[in-house]
Amino acid sequence: MLAAAHPRRRRWLDAAFLLLGAALIVLSLGTLAALLLDLLRDGLSRLSLEFLTSFPSRKPDQAGVKSAIVGTCAVMFVTAVTALPLGVASGIYLEEYARKNWRTAIIEINIANLAGVPSIIWGLMALGLLVYALGLKRSILTAGLTLGLLVLPIVIVATREAIRAIPQGIREGAYALGASRWQTVRHHVLPYSMSGILTGAIIAMSRAIGETAPLITIGALTYIAFLPPSPVTPSPPFVSLSWLDSPFTVLPIQMFNWVSRPDPRFHANAAAAGVVLMSITLSMNALAILLRYRSRRVIRW
């Protein structure tokens, strides 16, 4: 039922809502801007090449994020190796192979539920299962696996959406020419959905980079004044995996450590670490938006 207000009042209400909505959007984006400006104001004075290449220290003006940056890169490598193949393969299976039966239903409900599990719970799982039951200790490997599994649902959902956007006719054309199902996936479905999958992968990795809570739970150390052993060795076989066992810290944990100290001089360090972290995640997200925008313009079925 529609209220029979006076026409002039109704038009006034309409205009008021138009303004209210615009104001709230400006307010939300303004908060984001305030956050960025606050971070820059507090952190810019500490941001220097020295900050990026120094180990953490008890003296606030000598502390840096070297070990945190290296740790973030190492953990993200393991995360990507875990989440991307597993996620894309799951997505392909669910869209291209799965029959409508109870097995598929269980997997689908399960993935939907996993996406809603709070990140700290992943940390508890990693602590009980990976650190103690499997004996992986508080290592880069444990952290990478934890974050890889945490972002797995994001990769799966993105892969499925990208694959679903491909018209059925493409597959039928391939089948008609005698392609097997895998050939169809390999030569048609995957290449055409690549930009969508890539977008999802970038979003997933940017989420993983900023994730702090599960790594605290598995006991990432906050004071690491050394780098993990190098993955390249001078003697054969030239590749070493011992870095996987190394203790580590990452950027968000280093920032958390500094922000929770009472000495305000460390807060400037936290802000500077925040600037580094935000420039990474924001540029990854910008890249994802760009990719999505471009693929929408280029591909017209």
Partner: peptide, 30 residues
């Protein structure tokens, strides 16, 4: 080859169920 690939993809999808079991198992056990 088709069968092997399908089985591998199924295992990847089923891994997420194992992850759930891991989460619930760890929490309930401790």
């Amino acid at each position: 080859k088709e069968r092997v690939i399908e089985a591998a993809l199924f295992l990847a999808a089923a891994a997420s169920v194992l992850v759930t079991l891991g989460i619930v198992g760890a929490l309930v056990y401790e």
